[in-house]
Design a protein around this nucleic acid. Structure first.
Length: 497
RNA sequence: GCGCCCUUCGUCUAUCGGUUAGGACGACAGCCUUUCACGUUGUAAAGACGGGUUCGAUUCCCGUAGGGCGCGCCA
């Protein structure tokens, strides 16, 4: 996925006279920077959405950088899942995805530069010693921080045989102030920030160094990420300043919690976006839902992605965490299903099938003839489905082969009374001159009226016989789509026993 | 433990000192109706608590409580 050619840093966009007015100081560049240690979870998806929406709103670019410097935990599968997830969600990035690991040499150089400037130093403490340090601090109820043992110690006193790490020499006095577009002005006392490791003993850079170097080199102007990075923002600012670089604009968005208010777990939202695809959600619906989690534009609830782009500002981002609510997502998804044109919905449905259990089989059974029937039934079906999974279930009767097996409720409908009504309906339908929904409806209604029956007394048994269930689209639509032969056949099947 | 942040109906949120505190989802009730939905009408439902500041606080400040995040040779 990340071939050598993919890892090149994309050239910065040249200010385009037609799209970037002269008064704009510089084009906006955002980035989404996931670490490939798992799938693209829902929080990451929203972060990507915000970065994307902001970049689009500003006529800027959103870059994608895979933070794969942890060689132990990064996997190719995760990278693939993240790219796939972003594509499914419709969040295309600009340029090629950048592998952070491909830039280690540059990161090491910057660590050297910091060393040269006296902004960093070698530390010879072993992991065991650091563990002991932490344990002791905890036991004495002191803040858990590196104690600065090697900060000012003469390297010539270094113990032999120990490969040192490089630590950043963080300012000890004063405070670091983050001007955050979502969080406001956040002040962190420097005494609470210790000397973080920027180069491991094996010579590989750590996250906080790499991000700063990459964001700077890639020309990132706006950093939008989760608040869990807020403390990192302070440390990173210190590195920016030590390097004499401009600090990008910062926006730390609140986190998404599970329905119970606690951290997202496997049970609820901590699923990959592919799980949402398998649950039958439409990308547009998920985008709309995610946008309303932590961001708002007045009372607007349902809006297109175009509107999101038009309206998106960092000021619209809130400060408090939101809970993930499947009921609302489902409602929105139902709205999107209902309002998607039939032919387009059919496309979504077909591309969804391979991702759901039993979907492959259905896809294989989908002959051109059946596809036509499905398309004709969609207006009735989509009105009743909140997810594509429900759509699949409700479309089953189209695929069913005679004789149909009935569910319990359908069976109950075909009691003696039901069968009697069905028999009458069969005669009326068999005699129908024109096989169309309206014509059949008129005929059956006339028959019901003549027999002094409520239409429901006939429609329900018909539904049971035709679909094998007690719920379906309008029964005359079902009849029309199924056609005379199949319809009469299904009814006759039930009349036999 | 230390630091930072958060707190409006059950949930997502509007409000940027003056509102009968609005909308949406969900819930409940009615209407529509061949089922289920859709649609539609209506109802219940909120400023965590305590102090200030102010003519006036949901809004500004302080404290308390509750919650979240961070404190790795992870990102």
């Amino acid at each position: 996925m990340l071939s050598a050619s993919d890892t090149a840093i994309p050239a910065l966009p040249q200010p385009n006279a037609t799209r970037t007015p002269a008064f704009m100081s510089s084009p906006v560049v955002t980035r989404f920077a996931p670490s490939p240690t798992g799938f693209l979870h829902i929080g990451g998806a929203r972060t990507a959405l915000f970065n994307w929406a902001f970049a689009k709103n500003q006529d800027g670019k959103m870059l994608l950088r895979i933070e794969d410097t942890d060689r132990e935990r990064s996997t190719e599968e995760a990278v693939a899942a993240i790219l796939e997830g972003l594509k499914w969600l419709g969040l295309e990035w600009d340029g090629a995805a950048v592998s952070q690991y491909s830039r280690v040499t540059r990161h090491r150089e910057m660590a050297e530069e910091l060393l040269k400037r006296g902004k960093a130093y070698y530390c010879y403490c072993t992991p065991a010693e650091l563990d002991a340090m932490r344990a002791k601090a905890e036991a004495e109820r002191r803040p858990i921080r590196y104690d600065g043992t090697w900060r000012d110690r003469d390297p010539s006193t270094a113990p032999a045989g120990i490969k040192p790490v490089v630590r950043f020499r963080a300012p000890q006095d004063g405070e670091t102030v983050i001007q955050d577009h979502a969080q406001g002005r956040v002040v962190i006392p420097n005494k609470d920030l210790d000397d973080l490791i920027i180069l491991r003993s094996d010579g590989n850079p750590t996250y906080n160094l790499s991000v700063v170097v990459d964001d700077h080199d890639m020309g990132v102007t706006h950093i939008i990420r989760g608040v869990d990075h807020l403390t990192n923002a302070a440390r990173q600012m210190q590195i920016y300043m030590a390097m004499g670089w401009d600090v990008p604009s910062m926006t730390h968005v609140p986190l998404i919690h599970g329905p119970d208010g606690a951290k997202l777990s496997k049970r609820h939202g901590a699923l990959g976006v592919e799980a949402y695809r398998a649950m039958g959600y439409l990308p547009a619906a998920l985008r709309n839902y995610l946008a309303r989690l932590g961001w708002s534009h007045g009372d607007d609830e349902i809006f297109s992605t175009e509107q999101l782009v038009e309206w998106f500002t960092l000021g619209g981002i809130g400060k408090s965490a939101a809970r993930f609510d499947f009921a609302k997502l489902e409602n929105l998804n139902g709205h999107y299903i209902r309002h998607t044109p039939d032919s387009e919905l059919l496309l979504h449905f077909k591309s969804f099938l391979p991702h759901v259990e039993g979907g492959e089989a259905l896809l294989e059974a989908l002959t051109p003839e059946l596809e036509t029937k499905l398309l004709l039934s969609l207006p009735g079906l989509k009105e009743r489905a909140k997810t594509l999974v429900e759509l699949m279930a409700s479309a089953r009767y189209l695929f069913a082969k005679r004789p149909l097996s009935l569910d319990d409720k359908a069976n109950a409908l075909l009691n003696e009374e039901g069968k009697a009504a069905l028999k009458g309906a069969h005669e009326v339908l068999a005699a129908a001159a024109e096989w169309s929904g309206p014509a059949l409806e008129a005929a059956v209604k006339a028959h019901a009226e003549a027999a002094g029956m409520k239409l429901g007394k006939i429609a329900q048994p018909l539904r049971a016989a035709l679909t094998g269930t007690s719920t379906s689209p309008g029964i005359f639509d079902v009849l029309e789509v199924l056609g005379p032969e199949e319809s009469l056949g299904r009814i006759a099947d039930q009349l036999k026993n």
